[in-house]
Nucleic acid binder design. Structure first.
Lengths: 103, 103
DNA sequence: ACTTCATATGACCGTCAAGGCATATGGCGG
DNA sequence: CCGCCATATGCCTTGACGGTCATATGAAGT
């Protein structure tokens, strides 16, 4: 069953996988090499990432090539959206503070 | 010990707490009422959120008032940053596709 | 000082997820 | 058709986490 996007991102190894896929698609073997984690572990994480829609999979000869899908990350970005006002507010407050310091 | 920001956000109840604190600071009791979760559970989640810097705590009479701190959320936003290029790229590709359709 | 209210903490339990190992699948070359 | 290579899956153990209940802390009021 598909897991929640935040739960998926909670795993450091999975985030590292996403990092590796950011610039280019990669085969499972390449990911294993780049991560220093056992192949079954990587495959399992890929399963989770696939089920949650973070990555898609294409079969090329004997290899499976994984590619990043931006969808779920956009969703997370969307979740963050209402919070961005906070930083803006904080920055405003900071500005006001600095302004009052200046004069 | 302080837990990783993504791990903290993986908990639905903790996200709901953050949601509640988005607009205004609240006492523990108010949070309990708004969440329908037992008070000890809420206190523990608040502990985690505090340790990770998501919230700060002020003591007012017998109550403890919690307020949202944007720091860790900004960090998450920063982590997302290099991925935003992907959506941009995707949109570009879509545009190009639509353009080629038009003519 | 004693009680009460608001919150924090500790102990205990059930659940779940991650890693390691062994093994199954499935395409490909000989 | 058989063995090999790349990847996936099952089983098992272990550790972390969340919930509940009971209890500790600590400030306020009487």
């Amino acid at each position: 069953m598909s897991t929640d996007a935040f739960t998926v991102l909670a795993e450091p190894t999975r985030r590292r996988i996403l990092d590796q896929l950011r610039d280019a698609e990669r085969s499972v073997g390449e990911l294993v090499d780049g991560l220093g984690v056992s192949q079954p572990a990587v495959s399992k994480h890929l399963r989770v990432l696939r089920d949650a829609g973070f990555v898609t999979c294409r079969t090329a000869a004997r290899q499976r090539i994984y590619r990043l899908d931006p969808g779920p990350l956009r969703a997370v970005d969307g979740w963050l959206d209402p919070y961005r006002r906070l930083w803006a507010r904080h920055l405003d407050a900071l500005e006001r503070h600095l302004d009052s310091q200046e004069q």
